[in-house]
Amino acid sequence: MAQVRVTRLARELPLVPDATLLLRTLAAGHEGAEAPSELVAQLKIRGLVQILDLRPAITELGHTYLAATDDVRTDTNVCVIDVDRRARTVQVEVPAWRDGELATVLLDQVVGDSGLDAVMLSGRWLVAEANLSALDHDRLVLTGFRSAAPLPAGGVAVDGGEAR
């Protein structure tokens, strides 16, 4: 959930340029970078920076923020394979990322984004924004779930609206 929160922050409410520049400086390995304390405090509250040896250092979420600002994010079709209402998770397949592999997302995120009820999700195709260049499941971040266009007769949706 933290990755989704930070990705949305980067895409919808980006930091001021000085804060982003500080994150990039820290990501480049300059842990001792001088920075205004109010700027560091702002990044620390968001979980993007931590203090190590009395100096600011970028966190994993800080790296996620930078990736969200730099990565290409694409609308893509996802198929809901399984809904676990007890665990509050959804297993989705993202064919444009890795056909046949499943990714886990939070049920509340899918329901909140799409406006669909949890009982309506299994087997349903949705569209989500994704970083399709993610190297693994931990870096794949899906946001903005919404209903997909109806499937063509006899086909399964893939990116670009074509059938396969």
Rank of each mutant, 00 (worst) to 15 (best):
R124G: 03
Q3Y: 05
A35N: 02
T104H: 03
V16F: 05
R98C: 01
L107Q: 11
D136C: 08
H30L: 11
A130I: 12
A2P: 10
P17I: 03
W97G: 01
E101S: 12
N77W: 13
L21W: 11
W125D: 10
L15W: 05
A103P: 05
G115R: 09
R73W: 03
L61W: 12
G47C: 04
N131P: 05
R24P: 01
A118L: 01
T74P: 02
R11I: 03
G144N: 14
V78K: 02
P150Q: 13
G161T: 04
D159K: 12
V78G: 00
V110T: 04
T69Q: 13
G62E: 04
T69E: 15
Q42W: 00
A41E: 15
G160F: 09
L21P: 01
T7G: 05
A157P: 09
L107H: 06
P152G: 12
K44L: 09
E162A: 09
Q50G: 05
T89W: 02
R85Q: 15
D75I: 07
L106F: 07
D82H: 14
T59G: 11
D159Y: 14
A157M: 09
H30Q: 14
V105L: 02
L107R: 06
A128E: 08
E60L: 15
A2W: 13
D113S: 10
D108V: 03
V141M: 00
W97E: 00
T76M: 03
E12Y: 01
T20G: 04
P152L: 15
E101D: 14
V105E: 00
D136V: 02
S147E: 14
L121G: 09
M1E: 05
A134N: 01
V90P: 06
H30R: 14
R46H: 06
E129G: 11
G161V: 02
H137Y: 07
R88M: 10
E129R: 15
R85I: 08
T76E: 03
V94T: 10
T89F: 01
A41I: 02
D159L: 13
P150C: 12
W125L: 03
S147W: 01
G154A: 08
D108P: 04
E101V: 13
W97I: 06
R98L: 09
D82T: 12
A130E: 04
L135W: 03
S114W: 08
L39C: 06
